[in-house]
Design a protein around this nucleic acid. Structure first.
Length: 562
RNA sequence: UGGCCGGUAGUUCAAUUGGCAGAACGCCUGGUUUUGGUCCAGGAGGUCGCAGGUUCGAUCCCUGCCCGGCCAGCCA
């Protein structure tokens, strides 16, 4: 098990690690710590899974233990090899290396044998009732269940029937194997849960050799036990399954100490959804271009978006682990993204909404190169040369004919600094018939090369720019919240109703400084003053805004509106 | 409706066996700054879900209540 370095902070110990410490102190598992990450390969991993991954692999790392990746492939209906491959890739990207990659289907023989042993001891029976009847007879929260008429078959008969199920003597759904526990149990999970069902569906690993498949409850704890897992960590909704988890294991001869299930609260984030089912719907409905759309909260999506794996790990470590149902502000995640990227991202200049600036006292045809710092947070990142000329692109927002209060940028008669360039003063502006500014005429002060005035005069603002003669064109995607509601569907409404129609804004005329032609796919750079942008994985002339910079000016404007 | 799990700043989490309620993010103010970024300093923000009880003393223990989540798939 290995974990790459990331930004971490001192972390108060969580209740799970406390429990492990207690187990180590009592010698319950002989100081051994083993966890597992057990996804079903029926979709790609999302940011919620990252919490579980960080927890399980993180604990194994902390305690010098073991953590395997186990695919819970007990239901071939929605499962697929492409998801297996994708999940393996995503975990590696997040920065974790499983000690082994295993499959619940590896244990089908053992699981089957254990089921027979249960039957032999009168602890399981074959039920001929159909799904609907079983459901009806399970009873309700306040009403007892009704025993199946087949509940008291002899062991011999059950054994023959179960083998018949395995050997194809019955149709899908005709019979199931059930544990014989208590149809009047206050916990619904204990009312004779189904252990095996017949499904003539091709399985991506076992092919057609099995037509009966164990349910989650018959597979999960046993898989843990076979692998020698000590701490089986899962999300809160499995809480009511724990008595069944224990029941199964207590009635079997286990090769190791009996593992212990502990539940924690899954991760929810505002303005998005972390549910495979809903994410699949977004893909199937064509709202998203795929599971790897930069707007998707999937690991593949946030990777395209430019979220660094180290930042995700730091976030998970920060939010901790508890049993409180919680929804974190997406802004908190974004602050971790910024912290990481501020340290690591190269600074570049790019103009998203270009406005032409002509330096009227700069000689026609003369070119210059300015030296710019690549990352003020990291001296070793060095400097680069940026071409400069008579005609430049600046951001439309950086010039106002009629400036609002506290506006520090370019406006007629005011002097500002071009980053790494010169001081310029706006003289006049050309407007079109509608009064929109289409070109600004400025003069520059040759004494201010590099951005400092020899006479010590100050300037209130520094703006970014790109030489028009050297600019390269790019397409830039800007992103907003996926859902307008902080908690989509929380009031019982359809979550899709609050999908943000303006979540993606695509700008096709962006102008980049020439060195940006050298970015590698997926590389994240800071466009100075604008935010962090990731070069697309497939087309590096396309950029995705990972996250914006904190924007004091936006706050000032917001306050003024109130 | 029964059972289980939760409820501490706006949000998420802490508080060493009952002893002056803390942190991060966000927000506000000031300083630094060739990014209105970063960084630094400071500030506002809490009836510890509610009501009783035990105690010198309760966020913590007890009782009752309220609110939220999960559970009645041959999904996981």
């Amino acid at each position: 098990m290995s974990e790459t370095e990331g930004t971490t902070e001192p972390q108060p110990i969580d209740f799970i690690r406390e429990k492990i410490n207690a187990d180590n102190a009592s010698g319950k598992f002989g100081q051994r710590v083993q966890t597992r990450f057990p996804p079903e390969p029926n979709g790609y991993l999302h940011i919620g899974h990252a919490k579980s991954i960080c927890l399980n692999f993180g604990i194994a790392g902390d305690y010098d233990g073991v953590c395997k990746l186990r695919f819970d492939d007990t239901n071939p209906e929605a499962e697929d090899q492409s998801f297996v491959d994708g999940i393996i890739e995503d975990i590696a990207w997040l920065g974790f290396e499983p000690d082994d990659i295993v499959y619940a289907s590896d244990y089908f023989d053992q699981l089957y044998d254990w089921a027979e042993s249960l039957i032999e001891r009168g602890l399981a029976y074959v039920d001929d009732q159909n799904a609907e009847t079983i459901s009806e007879n399970r009873g309700g929260f306040t009403t007892p269940g009704v025993d199946s008429p087949w509940r008291d078959r002899s062991s011999e008969e059950n054994l023959a029937l179960f083998r018949g199920m395995r050997d194809g003597e019955f149709a899908d759904g005709e019979k199931v194997l059930r544990a014989k526990i208590d149809m009047n149990h206050e916990n619904m999970q204990m009312r004779d849960p189904v252990l095996y069902r017949i499904r003539r569906v091709h399985h991506q690993r076992t092919g057609d050799s099995w037509i009966i498949f164990p349910t989650y409850d018959w597979a999960h704890g046993q898989s843990d036990a076979i692998e020698a897992v000590t701490h089986s960590i899962c999300t809160l909704e499995f809480d009511s399954h724990r008595p069944l988890y224990d029941w199964c294991l207590e009635h079997l001869e286990l090769p190791h100490e009996q593992p212990e299930q502990t539940e924690f609260a899954r991760l929810n984030l505002t303005h998005t959804v972390t549910s495979k089912r809903k994410l699949r719907q977004l893909v199937d409905d064509g709202v998203m271009s795929g599971w790897d759309d930069a707007l998707m909260p999937t690991l593949r999506g946030v990777r395209r978006r430019g979220y660094p794996a180290a930042a995700i790990r730091a976030f998970m470590s920060h939010i901790g682990v508890a049993k409180t149902n919680s929804t974190h502000d997406i802004e908190l995640l974004e602050s971790f993204i910024r912290t990481e990227l501020n340290r690591t991202a190269l600074r570049r200049m790019a103009v998203l909404r270009p406005l032409k600036v002509v330096i009227t006292n700069w000689p026609e045809g003369q070119e210059d190169e300015r030296e710019a710092i690549n990352n003020p947070e990291d001296e070793s990142a060095g400097t680069r040369m940026v071409p400069f000329g008579r005609e430049l692109w600046i951001e439309q927002d950086d010039f106002k004919l009629d400036p609002p209060p506290k506006y520090f940028r370019l406006t007629p008669g005011r002097e500002v600094r071009l980053r790494a360039g010169y001081f310029i003063t706006a003289q006049d502006a050309v407007t079109d018939d509608d009064g929109n500014v289409v070109e600004v005429h400025c003069t520059y002060d040759p004494e201010t090369a590099g951005g400092q005035a020899p006479d010590g005069r100050k300037v209130k603002s520094t703006i970014h720019w790109v030489s028009a003669a050297h600019a390269i064109d790019a397409t830039v995607h800007l992103y907003d919240r996926l859902f307008t509601e902080p908690h989509p569907g929380a009031d019982g409404s359809d979550p899709m109703a609050s999908l943000n129609p303006d979540a993606r804004e695509t700008l096709t005329g962006a102008k980049l400084e020439p060195i940006l032609s050298e970015v590698t796919p997926g590389q994240v750079v800071q466009f100075e003053r604008l935010g962090y942008f990731a070069a697309d994985l497939d087309d590096p002339a396309v950029f995705h805004r990972t996250v914006g910079l904190r924007d004091e000016w936006a706050n000032i404007q917001k306050r003024r509106q109130k």
